[in-house]
Design a protein around this nucleic acid. Structure first.
Length: 149
DNA sequence: GCCAACGTTGGC
DNA sequence: GCCAACGTTGGC
């Protein structure tokens, strides 16, 4: 799950009550479908810092509430406002996430690109713009190992 | 349903 | 700041 640290980074999550928050603002249908349909309580996710230097995976979160309507779409004062989404017919969804741990060190995009073991990782696909994306267990474990070295 | 124009994302 | 890669919009 991606976020720009200048907007909301892993340290912001650490400062949230109970280190938990709702992951709002996703406005892409593919990502929406994953938030709404696939992510289950207890699932784990990497926290990725995008659009910063260096872009990197910085920690782990746990899904603590399954997909429910993203109310920020209904607030005209919110940058994520979408007039086409209503309370009766919500278009956008979010989940609640809780910080599991911050990595001992960030695992940068550049570093991940260097490892052939991570071939096929959706994050490394050229032109990828999904803010929520799945990954395979083998990639998960490999990245975790990198973070511990 | 096609596709050109435009907007956004995000690495570099 | 540049630009590739997508997604969205809207005319037809």
């Amino acid at each position: 799950m991606k976020s720009e640290p200048s907007v909301f980074g892993i340290d912001d999550l650490a400062e949230c009550p109970n280190e938990t928050t709702h992951w709002d603002g996703v406005r892409n249908y593919q990502a929406r479908n994953m938030l709404r349909d696939q992510m289950k309580v207890g699932d784990l996710a990497f926290f990725y810092h995008s659009n910063c230097k260096p872009p990197a995976i910085v920690g782990i979160m746990e899904i603590v509430r399954e997909g429910y309507p993203d109310h920020t779409a209904h607030d005209p004062d919110c940058p994520y406002y979408d007039p086409k989404s209503t309370a009766e017919n919500p278009r956008w969804y979010m989940v609640d996430v809780k910080l599991v741990k911050k990595f001992k060190r960030p695992v940068s995009l550049e570093e991940m690109k260097r490892h052939p073991q991570l071939e096929g990782l959706p994050l490394l696909r050229r032109g990828n713009r999904l803010s929520v994306m799945p990954l395979e267990a083998k990639h998960w474990h490999f990245i975790l190992t990198l973070s511990e070295t």
